[in-house]
Design a protein around this nucleic acid. Structure first.
Lengths: 330, 330
DNA sequence: CTGAAAGCGCTTACAG
DNA sequence: CTGAAAGCGCTTACAG
């Protein structure tokens, strides 16, 4: 009422102008928006949700992570924190609250609690949760592509390009035998990176070395795997650690074996963390920009809930952060 | 209406019975509750919030954490994840959504976004955020005690008891010279643990060794600090790493120097993570039960918002998880 | 484009 | 304890 009066229009016009509905003259819309800003008007979410029959809640299904000591670690703890905080902010900016649902709670939660839509973080290739969501006929967006289904509602990393960017960098710096430390599990991101690595290698007539590493203790598993790998007859001259902390384990193994980094061995990480920048030598890594992906996923879901046309999948580009571990003296 | 009809009472009675208001006969209340359960009735939160003038939103202010590569790490990343997920669930169970607010966003967020109350995670001794909350006259609960203010609205760990439990265990296993690896910063938890350690030492006529460790790279900083500490003339026979991963750094330093764990050096951690259980030797740690604290903090805030009498501070007990790093052969 | 009306689901004040 | 009424802030359908 106040905004409408300040703009000199009716309530209906004010509401339509602010919400982008109906036919409203451009000048009128501007006046209404200006009046709303002037008055500091912000729609009451409870009222809006009550009227529109929405719950105002989005759920975010998290992948397994080290909830209690002894369980498996997530492949990217720091990345998850960045993702969840960015997603919560984005949801709130669009008038939604974001609930985080750990995997154990998902089956019963999804069936009992009211919500408008769901974001599924890192589906794996046989993801139970997606089946349940489809059965319940719930709108959802995945963060990273769902390999098993042909859905367009996802935001993914540009994994093929990212992987090639890192591999090209290693090759340009002189790497001839690159080994990929691949976390166990069938997450899209893991699968896609492995495929990209194999393709890149094939295109250059190289034999790809893919070494599976347990997720049970990220740094320690990578360390032990690398001790063996670096002692073998065909020692790689570069390793690419895919999960968080794999590169750190590789670095420790190299130090223990007296291998000079980067001169005898280059190390790269498929995911960046604050630790990569802090260790010596610092570790070259892909910054996959999880905040951007999280925000995009929320916006895609919100647009979908608003009934907008299904958008194309959104691909978020990564950035290569070159550090000491791959910077050989000229 | 439906519940009231099913229970054979009026709407008013049904509402009062379900919400614990007014004078309702115990038998009537039971019938109403049973009818609600039978019908699967759940109050519409938007309507309830609209009617009661609430926003239905609680905010949780997070301490600084490694948002982007290069920043400081939080002292307990895995612990934070457990805390945030448990808090979100608890809030939802009480009809609230929980928003996570990173420290950079807090000042403007608190002033602009509507919310009913705030949980402040890990205040430090000169916490700007608490000053702002008091100025805005916003109800808030801190997770861990706010040392600077005399507030009763907090949920804390039983830090004195926890610390003594761990120290007693080390002493019983034969430790005579215990060193505390203390993270930089003035978080309540850090300060209180240090005080407990000093008191415990004084009571036994021991000289407490407190070694400050940078938070910039948790494991690496502890490793480097310990290399030096373990090579000094008065080498400790036990170390207690306070922040997440400090104990791991200590373990690596011990291995590098050829110190047998636990026979020559015992290692304990003030905070438990999945990694402590996974490394060899596994590391004895305090399980501070962050889920329980988070839940309690939410419940305290909700009770406060409901106008209930200010409760006493709530103290959550920790558990000692004894592992190989302190289990000497008989 | 106006303006009055209706209703989302809930809680509460009130006369009986 | 009943039962009808009022109103939280919003959106939308509708006659003009």
């Amino acid at each position: 009422v106040d905004v409408a009066a300040a703009a000199g229009v009716s309530r209906t016009q004010a509401s339509d102008a602010l919400n982008g509905r109906g036919r409203v003259d451009a000048g009128t819309r501007e006046r209404v928006v200006a009046a709303a800003a002037e008055l500091g008007y912000r729609a009451n979410l409870s009222a809006r949700n009550l009227r529109s029959g929405k719950t105002g809640v989005l759920a975010m299904l998290l992948p397994a992570m080290g909830g209690t000591a002894g369980e498996n670690e997530a492949w990217g703890l720091e990345t998850y924190i960045r993702t969840t905080i960015a997603a919560a902010s984005a949801a709130f900016a669009h008038g939604y609250a974001l609930m985080f649902v750990p995997p154990e709670a998902a089956p019963s939660w999804l069936a009992q609690v009211p919500y408008d839509g769901v974001i599924v973080s890192d589906p794996d290739s046989d993801d139970q949760r997606l089946g349940q969501l489809e059965q319940l006929n719930v709108p959802f967006v995945t963060l990273e592509r769902d390999i098993a289904r042909e859905r367009k509602l996802y935001v993914g990393s540009d994994t093929d390009r990212n992987t090639r960017m890192l591999l090209d960098h290693l090759a340009a710096a002189g790497a001839e035998r690159i080994a990929l430390l691949r976390p166990e599990g069938q997450w899209s991101w893991t699968v896609e990176t492995t495929v990209a690595f194999e393709n890149w290698s094939a295109e250059r007539g190289r034999r790809p070395t893919v070494v599976p590493v347990s997720l049970h203790h990220l740094e320690g598993s990578a360390y032990e795997t690398c001790l063996e790998l670096f002692s073998s007859s065909e020692r790689p001259d570069a390793v690419l650690g895919l999960a968080e902390r794999f590169a750190l384990g590789a670095l420790r193994a190299a130090k223990e074996l007296g291998l000079a980094v980067p001169d005898q061995l280059m190390i790269g990480s498929g995911i960046d963390t604050s630790t990569n920048a802090a260790v010596q030598p610092s570790i070259t890594a892909l910054e996959i920009n999880p905040e951007r992906s999280a925000r995009a996923a929320v916006e895609m879901l919100v647009a979908h809930l608003a009934g907008e046309d299904p958008p194309a999948p959104l691909i978020v580009a990564g950035d290569l952060v070159v550090r000491e571990s791959t910077s050989r003296a000229a």
